[in-house]
Each structure stands twice: as C-alpha cells, then as structure tokens.
Design a protein around this nucleic acid. Sequence first.
DNA 1: CTGTATCCTGATAGATACTG
DNA 2: CAGTATCTATCAGGATACAG
Lengths: 110, 110
Amino acid sequence: MYENEFDATMQLIRGKWKIRILYELNSDPHTRFNALQRNLDPVTHKILSEQIQQMINDGLVKRIDFHEQPLHIEYHLTKRGQSLIPVVDAICDWGLANIDTSKLKQTLCN
Amino acid sequence: MYENEFDATMQLIRGKWKIRILYELNSDPHTRFNALQRNLDPVTHKILSEQIQQMINDGLVKRIDFHEQPLHIEYHLTKRGQSLIPVVDAICDWGLANIDTSKLKQTLCN
DNA sequence: CTGTATCCTGATAGATACTG
DNA sequence: CAGTATCTATCAGGATACAG
C-alpha cells in the first residue's frame, strides 16, 4: 500500500545507487555483478547487492544464472524496469541542463 | 561538487516531501505554510519547515514576506523550481501507469 | 501564522570479513 | 565470481515544546 503515486515511484528509485543501476543495465543488457560494481565505483559489494536484491523484489531487475563455473550471472531490466527509463532520462537531462558542469565530477549520460 | 548529474538532481528531490511540495507550489503559486501542511497531511511542522528551507537554499523555492500582522508569507517556485516540473510529472505519470491503483491510498496528480 | 530547538528513533549506507 | 553476516556510523524524519 502506497500513500500516492509520487511515493510509490520514489520508493523504487530513492536508493542511493538505483538510478545508476537502471542506467547501467539499460546501457548494457548483459551486465555482471563485478562490472556493475566497477562502473559504480565507490559502491561497496554489500550495498550493491542489497540494492539489486530490492530491485529484483520490486520487479525491476531480473537475475539470470548461467549455471557455469566460475559463477556467471547477468542482470537485466524487466519490462517494468525499462518503463522507468524515461524517468531516469528526465533526471539525467535536468542535471545536465541545470547544474554547472564545473560542479560535476563526472558526466555519465548523453 | 556533485558526483554526477544523477546525484545532482536526486539531492534536490530525494527528501520525503519535496516532490509533493514542488507539485503543490506549481498548482497554486500563492501557497502559505499552513495550507501546504494541510495538503501534505501527515507531515509535521518542523519537517515541512526544513524541507522548504533546503529548497530555498537550492534555489527552487522563493519566500515572499508580505510584512503583515498576523504573519503572511507565501511560497512559490523559482524558474529553477519550475524547470523541475517535467521530472515531477514523469514520476507522477509512471506511478499512475504502473502501480495498481488499488494499492494507492490517494491519487494526486492528473 | 511562521519558525526554531531538543531529543529520539529507524532507515540507510559503509567497512570488513567470511562462504560457496 | 557472487552473496551473506556483523558491526558501526550517519542521517533523515518525526514528537514535542517553545518563541516571535
């Protein structure tokens, strides 16, 4: 049960790394855990794991196990996850258009 | 200094009530503190005050003092605040389109 | 009507180490 | 390579009371 449509959406993307996870998984539909952690840089193993798990529970991300040794697991967006990309883009675009680029350590999208 | 454009935008709207404040101030450009608190319902006086203050510091909201007794203060969006409305709408639209409406206590936008 | 100070709690994130 | 457990730090949010 959600208070309203704002909170319902925000609960899914409020996590510190979730927007970026959506962006990464959208850019590369065959992302593995290590690659994701490398791209998100200062995120810790445990936190990334938690955020992914929540996104799986929320139906935004799917986990694919290739049953190989060494372990080979990929993550990709579900339809529902993909549907959030316009929101991700809106957030990205606003940042690029309205934040002084000299105040940005990195520019990631577009 | 921001990590990147995602974080830069999210820092401004991550607060629990900020999206709704943006929405309310956009709907009514002459909003007073009490009215805002009433519309956001379970928000406490102190928290609303904090969130508004942050939004003023971030250049999203402007405070207008009418120098009347009893106090008469109105808040409205700055240009910068208005520019965030497309982001607010994207979040609102996604929620309406993707959350089972029976799980929403209220529907606020559109 | 509007704003601030104190105190408290839970959620969130991070450091680190251990497992298959 | 992927995932979990423990412990700790920090912060955001909220209850309450007081002030101009």
